[in-house]
Design a protein around this nucleic acid. Sequence first.
DNA 1: GGGTTGAATTAGACGTGTCTAAACTAAATA
DNA 2: TATTTAGTTTAGACACGTCTAATTCAACCC
Lengths: 232, 232
Amino acid sequence: MLSDVMEDYLKAIYSLQMEHGPPVSTSSIAEYLGKTPPTVTSMVGKLEERGLLEREKYKGVELTTEGETVALEVLRHHRLLEAYLTEHLDYSWSEVHEEADALEHHISEEFERRVAAALGDPEVDPHGDPIPSADLTPPKSAGLSTLSDHGVGDTLVVCRVSDRDPEELEYLSEAGVTPGTTIEITDVAPFGMVTVRVVDSGREQSLPESVAQTIRVRAPDEECEDESVSTV
Amino acid sequence: MLSDVMEDYLKAIYSLQMEHGPPVSTSSIAEYLGKTPPTVTSMVGKLEERGLLEREKYKGVELTTEGETVALEVLRHHRLLEAYLTEHLDYSWSEVHEEADALEHHISEEFERRVAAALGDPEVDPHGDPIPSADLTPPKSAGLSTLSDHGVGDTLVVCRVSDRDPEELEYLSEAGVTPGTTIEITDVAPFGMVTVRVVDSGREQSLPESVAQTIRVRAPDEECEDESVSTV
DNA sequence: GGGTTGAATTAGACGTGTCTAAACTAAATA
DNA sequence: TATTTAGTTTAGACACGTCTAATTCAACCC
Ligand SMILES: [Mn+2]
Ligand SMILES: [Mn+2]
Ligand SMILES: [Mn+2]
Ligand SMILES: [Mn+2]
């Protein structure tokens, strides 16, 4: 009986919590969702009444277990849809996010099951984001560094990229920087511009700091630790 | 910028117009959608302001060309989805309608194109209902009689069944009465119960009047005239 | 033609989600 | 410690879609 608007708030709070940890501020939610802060205060009040999050006035919010479960459910829908659209309907990397955002609130549990089955229960979506399992236990994810945490000479494998900006995705796919790609950092300019060489193609590519921060990487001999336990 | 609620009204009015012709009364829309008459009056006023229908007070409404186009667009989405779910996600006949009703408002034009392509541009959905073409020109459909228009001894081919009641669909698929099936009427009871023999299986099946009215049929040597011109 | 009646509309209310403007808090600054 | 300020909340408004209760209309019957 949650509205799709409420689901969007919970999903947003979950993402912000993953990124910066709780408490999540009113203004960060507002910015993430493109709403005004009073709107967020009002909605957050309703979600608290429903027991989906805890709130400390003037501080911020944190999802309860129940709220987190809802967020994971929506995220599972979203990422399964992205995977399905890519695999079975020939969508590109950059197109799927918007479509999945519109559909994620409207598919049935039956649809979720059938899509998961058609895909063979995948563990990650096309951007490398982990797909929550059907039982919605919280994935022990993260622990991955970002491209901007590294320096010249480091050789890295791309694990995840942000799915929110189609233009950025277009650029990265054009550049050949996708999950699984091995890259080497060849230059870091003082103002944050990072230049990487794609090992397979030898191609060099410069990325602005803002983009480098959204690319999650691992050392060549590690796993993309989305399954294993790790420190937050 | 039409809301999905508005789309549902236009779709409902279109269906009622096909069934009984304009003008479509407030109460019939209310009953079809499960709303109260004042709610319908209010919504119909807004749709009129937007030029999607014409209205004569205390008489009823009729879709404008623009309103009809919207209805056909939504109907195309709905029926393509039903076909896709049946063909590619292993849904049964009786399950698809509800799922399509939820998704039809939320798919993009891109999604519509890709689904149509994956299906090879089908002309009918799993219930035999015609899928409006991509250019949304009004299908010159109808002209088909219903099972209850016929009498004992008539041999007929099933063209379309109603998609709105999952239980009825369950029953019909169990009985082997699906679009394309040849049947022969073996008995018509005075209170409207019709008994038919499925020619291929030899199986006999009785159907209540209410169901017989929703089954569109043709003579064995005709076409299901959904493409050709015919009188309304 | 005038009354009866059933359908349609108007009136008024409510919940949801959003906004702007005003008030308030708490943290940083002087 | 007092003031400024950035961020948050409250106050009040509005659009949407819905309802119930009251009113109005038009068609039918006598
Ligand atoms: Mn996405
Ligand atoms: Mn689910
Ligand atoms: Mn249907
Ligand atoms: Mn369309």
